[in-house]
Nucleic acid binder design. Structure first.
Lengths: 241, 241
DNA sequence: TAAATTTGTCTAATGTACTAGACAACTACT
DNA sequence: AGTAGTTGTCTAGTACATTAGACAAATTTA
């Protein structure tokens, strides 16, 4: 007679073990170079079979977080999580300066569309009004760190997409519209599982968690200029207020 | 429109559909009273079988988020997500004022322990030094909203646990130590799957996501007084900066 | 009333998740 | 060299996840 485990909540045990071990690593309980507990001990700790633990370790090995060595044990390879500071003057690049060497943003295109209720409210325009929508993907040291979608009022920023592709920077694109400075009016932070597109672009294992930030930036006069929805891999980033 | 369908990432398809639909509801795409798309349409959208969609809807019905009516359709019952503002003067109760009717905090006890590296760093003491650890669970209108653990320097707040049980409020307990005012020095926000204890206390389905906030509060002189680790159910709360 | 639409229930088949036990391959220590 | 400890691989069985099709039951529309 098999003893039934706690009802599955739709998240496989091996995936929960992946999350738990990674949390110990990025949280500092285990440092780079440390040896993890043996598979047998981990199986005991998580009330799981050794094979299930092995599956979790295989995923972490795939990600480069740990590495197994036959006869010796399994060791922590790579540790830390980036910190992204959020405040009045929030700039993605500057915020991560000092934490990463290389930085690159891929523009995934832009198009016109009608404002959703949320976008309209954030930008202070009526729902359905024309807005410019810009898609982007930012990587640090070759690792994808942020998938972002930004909406801007078409009446003021008709060619923003083109400007951005040329100038390669939001700050500079805003300057081309005469906005010398801008600041963060509000940031809403929530969290959910990554969808399939995010999983692919952010190079996540399916089922990974993303931190979602909804940010409204305003110009010097306090007028909303952009509404941005950014998704960060929770395993690679934390937000600091 | 969210598209899912990832193979075998350890998160069951029905659970991803639960998350996606709930996101549409708490995100405002669907308001209370609205009829959801039919099961057939949802199955099409998520590239899933109707049975799989039905399982997801059953979970949401269990949570009270939606309700199905035979022959008519499935309707949104309960909508919103609470917003918890984070700033210089962050107070849990005040932050949620106006959003909830009733408010209750259960103290889950307190004890002495030796400071972890993270706690020590936050409080500006040496690792291993004695700290007071306080556990709590806060509910709004009967729904658990926050599971928190707070650490304080033992040398300054030896009897904090007792004070808190008597005074029922962090603000008042701090006052009893002569701290008339305090403010938020920093908040780190991350996200992960809920562990077993959190799942139970916060009344979550296993596999749910929690937003994790690590906060350091300081007194008027800028000296750290508390380090708090709070876990919020991502499906019920968002953080606003 | 009849037809169309929508949710509710049943049976069945296939692949994934998890458990269980056994043994091989490799490393470190005595 | 021998032994204990650890990871790697194999087989096999049970429960869960997902798909598929069919029909019943309730509601709305024509």
């Amino acid at each position: 007679m098999t003893v039934l485990k706690d009802v599955s909540g739709g998240v496989a045990l091996w995936r929960q073990i992946v999350d738990a071990i990674r949390l110990d690593i990025v949280g500092g309980k285990l440092a780079a170079g440390d040896r993890l507990p043996t598979e047998a001990v981990l199986a005991e700790r998580f009330s799981a079979n050794r094979h299930t633990v092995r599956r979790a370790l295989a995923v972490l090995a795939e990600e480069g977080v740990v590495g197994a060595e036959q006869g010796r044990g399994t060791f922590v390879r790579n540790a830390k999580r980036l910190s992204y500071p959020i405040g009045k003057r929030t700039r993605f690049r500057e915020g991560l300066k000092g934490q990463v060497e290389d930085f690159s943003t891929i523009r995934l295109g832009h198009r016109l569309e009608n404002a959703s209720a949320a976008a309209a409210k954030a930008l202070g325009i009526r729902a359905g009004a024309k807005v410019v929508r810009v898609e982007g993907l930012t990587s640090a040291d070759g690792v994808p760190m942020s998938r972002s979608t930004t909406w801007l009022d078409y009446r003021r920023f008709a060619d923003f997409g083109e400007q951005l592709e040329q100038l390669k920077s939001f700050t500079k694109a805003f300057e081309s519209y005469g906005i010398a400075d801008y600041s963060r009016a509000s940031t809403r932070i929530s969290s959910r599982h990554a969808d399939i597109e995010e999983t692919k672009l952010l190079k996540l294992v399916p089922g990974a968690i993303v931190l979602v930030s909804e940010a409204v930036d305003v110009d010097a006069g306090g007028t909303p200029i952009s509404y941005a929805l950014s998704r960060f891999p929770a395993e690679r980033m934390e937000l600091v207020v």
